[in-house]
């Protein structure tokens, strides 16, 4: 059964590849990405292209390599094989270019990764202070506005250690979007948030896309969030993109693997090999 599903994925993937070719030119192209840690193969030839202005959700089991994939896209990890192109530039070949490319990318870490030695305000202000150096009054205004977007303005003067997990997430999100990047990578933006805040964050993701034309990659386990924000969904399985398609295609899919994942069923092909 697993094999049947696996074979199908190959055809789905190539169909998708053809479809993508006819659309707008991709802003991010990941080709044949492979990465292992020690003896553990995490990515095994991942291929994905992302069009300018689209929001793509990457879903998949815990531990399949979603965060690892995102880290390759910003050059924090180097692949054993394969390339990542952003705006046509190979980020691993170009020395010096990576710095410039990163200035156009916002990245929300799964664990927020706030600098613990400074307040929320200073954390969010950091990218501005380092790259744009606006006058103090303007800086304050922009930081507080951005914190307002994630409903964190009151916590501006708190230290990260005083925040809950969800608050850290939101502060990290504010830091990721403050310079209005062209591309935003979200690693589980709604994990650990209550439903109300989650929906605020979903709206924020949609807003950024509509108003600023941001290209977003959202890694998430939260299926309601996925169906809310995604233009396209890509499912990561065993180190490759198992299937990518529109939310509707996913919802209607008969594939047991996909059904199991999006409907959260405990019976099915997932985890059979682990347990």
């Amino acid at each position: 059964m697993l094999d049947a599903a696996y074979n199908r994925s190959q055809t789905v993937e190539t169909d998708q590849g053809k479809a993508a070719g006819t659309e707008a030119a991709p802003i991010i192209e990941i080709d044949d990405l492979a990465k292992r840690f020690g003896s553990k193969e995490v990515l095994t030839g991942l291929r994905l292209s992302i069009r300018r202005g689209e929001t793509i959700c990457i879903i998949g089991e815990s531990g399949t390599g979603k965060s690892v994939t995102l880290k390759h896209i910003v050059g924090l990890l180097r692949p054993d094989r394969g390339t990542v192109r952003i705006g046509g530039v190979d980020i691993f070949a170009a020395d010096g270019q990576l710095q410039e490319i990163r200035k156009k990318i916002g990245f929300l870490f799964q664990g927020a990764a706030l600098l613990n030695s400074m307040t929320v305000f200073d954390n969010v202000a950091l990218p501005l202070r380092e790259h744009e150096r606006p006058p103090e009054a303007e800086l304050r205004k922009r930081v507080l506005e951005t914190l307002e977007l994630v409903d964190m303005a009151e916590a501006a003067d708190k230290m990260p250690a005083e925040l809950s997990g969800g608050m850290k997430k939101r502060a990290g999100l504010a830091r990721a979007i403050i310079r209005q990047p062209e591309i935003i990578l979200y690693d589980e933006p709604t994990a650990g948030l209550d439903p109300v805040i989650s929906s605020t964050i979903n709206d924020l993701i949609l807003n950024l896309q509509e108003k600023l034309g941001v290209t977003s990659i959202v890694v998430t386990h939260d299926m309601s969030s996925t169906f809310r924000v995604a233009d396209r969904i890509a499912m990561l399985y065993q180190g490759k993109i198992y299937k990518s398609g529109t939310p509707d295609e996913f919802r209607k899919s008969e594939d047991p693997l996909i059904r199991q994942f999006i409907y959260g069923e405990s019976e099915g092909p997932l985890r059979r090999d682990n347990h």
């Binding site: 870490f109 990764a113 706030l114 380092e130 830091r175």
Partner: peptide, 22 residues
């Protein structure tokens, strides 16, 4: 070391802030 293991150094790099300079 604490900053490294809690991904703060990675965060600086992603923001194009050179940890050596900073």
């Amino acid at each position: 070391g604490t900053m490294k293991v809690s991904e703060e150094i990675d965060a600086l790099e992603v923001m194009s802030i050179d940890p050596v300079r900073y």
